[in-house]
Amino acid sequence: MKKYKITVYDEKTGEKHTIEIEMSEEELEELAKKLAEKHNVKVRIEKV
Score class of each variant (00 low, 15 high):
residue 20 E to G: 01
residue 21 I to Q: 04
residue 47 K to C: 12
residue 42 K to S: 13
residue 43 V to D: 01
residue 17 H to I: 13
residue 46 E to I: 09
residue 11 E to H: 05
residue 1 M to F: 06
residue 39 H to I: 13
residue 42 K to T: 14
residue 6 I to D: 00
residue 20 E to I: 14
residue 12 K to F: 13
residue 24 S to A: 09
residue 22 E to H: 08
residue 48 V to Q: 06
residue 16 K to I: 15
residue 24 S to G: 11
residue 3 K to P: 01
residue 21 I to K: 04
residue 36 A to K: 11
residue 17 H to Y: 15
residue 37 E to Q: 12
residue 27 E to C: 05
residue 12 K to G: 10
residue 44 R to T: 15
residue 14 G to R: 05
residue 15 E to F: 09
residue 29 E to T: 12
residue 14 G to C: 07
residue 22 E to L: 10
residue 1 M to N: 11
residue 4 Y to F: 07
residue 33 K to M: 08
residue 2 K to Q: 15
residue 13 T to G: 03
residue 35 L to H: 02
residue 11 E to P: 12
residue 9 Y to T: 09
residue 2 K to R: 12
residue 30 E to V: 14
residue 4 Y to C: 04
residue 29 E to Y: 14
residue 48 V to F: 00
residue 8 V to Q: 02
residue 31 L to Q: 01
residue 48 V to D: 05
residue 4 Y to K: 02
residue 30 E to S: 10
residue 44 R to G: 05
residue 38 K to M: 15
residue 20 E to D: 05
residue 22 E to G: 02
residue 28 L to M: 14
residue 48 V to I: 13
residue 33 K to Y: 03
residue 40 N to V: 05
residue 39 H to D: 11
residue 29 E to G: 10
residue 40 N to R: 08
residue 37 E to W: 01
residue 46 E to L: 01
residue 32 A to H: 07
residue 5 K to I: 15
residue 31 L to A: 03
residue 17 H to E: 06
residue 46 E to Y: 00
residue 16 K to G: 09
residue 37 E to F: 03
residue 28 L to I: 11
residue 15 E to H: 10
residue 18 T to M: 07
residue 28 L to N: 02
residue 47 K to T: 15
residue 5 K to W: 13
residue 40 N to Q: 06
residue 1 M to I: 11
residue 48 V to T: 05
residue 19 I to P: 00
residue 41 V to F: 06
residue 44 R to S: 14
residue 47 K to I: 15
residue 31 L to V: 08
residue 37 E to G: 12
residue 38 K to Y: 07
residue 21 I to M: 10
residue 15 E to M: 12
residue 7 T to V: 07
residue 3 K to D: 02
residue 36 A to E: 08
residue 48 V to A: 06
residue 32 A to I: 15
residue 18 T to C: 09
residue 38 K to A: 09
residue 1 M to Q: 11
residue 12 K to S: 12
residue 4 Y to W: 10
residue 27 E to G: 12
residue 25 E to L: 09
residue 15 E to A: 09
residue 29 E to R: 13
residue 45 I to D: 01
residue 14 G to E: 02
residue 25 E to R: 08
residue 29 E to N: 12
residue 39 H to G: 15
residue 21 I to E: 03
residue 18 T to K: 03
residue 12 K to Q: 11
residue 33 K to F: 04
residue 14 G to Q: 05
residue 2 K to G: 10
residue 40 N to S: 08
residue 30 E to G: 08
residue 38 K to P: 06
residue 39 H to K: 14
residue 2 K to C: 10
residue 3 K to M: 07
residue 34 K to R: 11
residue 10 D to G: 01
residue 40 N to K: 06
residue 28 L to G: 04
residue 39 H to A: 13
residue 22 E to Y: 15
residue 29 E to P: 05
residue 2 K to T: 13
residue 11 E to G: 04
residue 30 E to N: 12
residue 34 K to F: 08
